[in-house]
């Protein structure tokens, strides 16, 4: 069976001032359509690098990367990225930011009114209709992150790539957005790759958790299938034996098998 996103024997080497630095080696990862996959690992192991390779923002030095059976060459709107620091354009309103993305994808097929409709719908999906005409500097960090998600969703991408999308948020906002993301994914059947360093977040959201070994030359250590039924309720899962078992598995990997010695 052909995976939707397929990484085979991927290696990534950065050429730095102090010579070549091998960030990744022999990364194999097959992701099915509609799957939610988290990438977890210690800081600096190469999670963002994997995501950026799939996004096409970086070019792998070896191996093959396929998306929908075709080689990944550069970025494209079929793989929308939610950036860690939201990366909204400060001179555009929330609607403007989303609209810029919508125009790129639907510009030659739809009228201006239809595209505006799409932008508003995406913002409604993340409950931000009241902030449509606000500028990024006028809204909170959590709201900015939601606009970033709306921008990505509005493109109706085949794959959604998220680099620690909730990393900079407080626990309450984070929980709220995780729940929203789950319901959006359930509704849209999106294929998602999410980088995280939060064990609970990974177990709660994922179908599979990719655990990476420490760098340099990091690779996929283990892959954990999370077979919890959906929809998932964070309150019920708190005392759920299976949930805690998965949690424990990830923690064991991170803190026993691949404990990060202070660099």
């Amino acid at each position: 069976m052909n995976a939707y996103i397929q990484l085979d024997n991927v290696g990534m080497q950065f050429n730095t001032k102090r010579g070549p630095f091998i960030a990744l080696r022999e990364v194999d990862l097959h992701i099915q359509k509609g799957e939610f996959v988290s990438i977890i690992g210690h800081s600096g192991c190469g999670k963002s690098t994997v995501l950026n390779l799939v996004a096409g923002l970086l070019d792998a030095t070896s191996g093959t990367l396929l998306c929908a059976g075709r080689e990944i060459r550069g970025p494209g709107p079929d793989r929308a990225v939610v950036f860690q620091n939201h990366s909204l354009l400060p001179w555009l309103t929330c609607t403007g930011n989303v609209l810029l993305a919508v125009e790129q994808v639907f510009g030659d097929k739809e009228s201006k009114a239809q595209m505006l409709e799409r932008a508003h719908a995406a913002l409604e999906l993340v409950h931000l209709t009241h902030a449509n005409d606000k500028f990024p500097h006028e809204i909170s960090g959590g709201m900015k992150q939601r606009v970033g998600i709306a921008r990505a969703l509005a493109m109706e991408p085949k794959a959604l790539l998220m680099d620690e999308p909730f990393g900079a948020l407080d626990a309450l906002t984070r929980a709220h957005l995780q729940d929203e993301l789950m319901s959006i994914c359930a509704a849209t059947q999106s294929t998602v790759i999410m980088v995280t360093h939060d064990v609970d977040e990974a177990v709660l959201l994922s179908d599979r958790i990719v655990m990476m070994t420490n760098g340099p030359s990091a690779t996929v250590g283990e892959i954990l299938h999370v077979e919890l039924p959906r929809p998932r309720e964070r309150l019920q899962l708190a005392d759920d034996a299976a949930y805690n078992h998965y949690r424990h598995e990830v923690l064991t990997f991170l803190y026993e098998k691949h404990h990060k010695t202070a660099a």
Partner: peptide
């Protein structure tokens, strides 16, 4: 970051100039 947005959205050179470089 802004240039990465431009790349992911596949903006044309004209749009990169008018929508990102010029205001930035």
């Amino acid at each position: 970051d802004y240039m990465n947005v431009a790349r992911v959205l596949n903006l044309s050179e004209w749009k990169i100039v008018t929508r990102i470089l010029l205001p930035a």
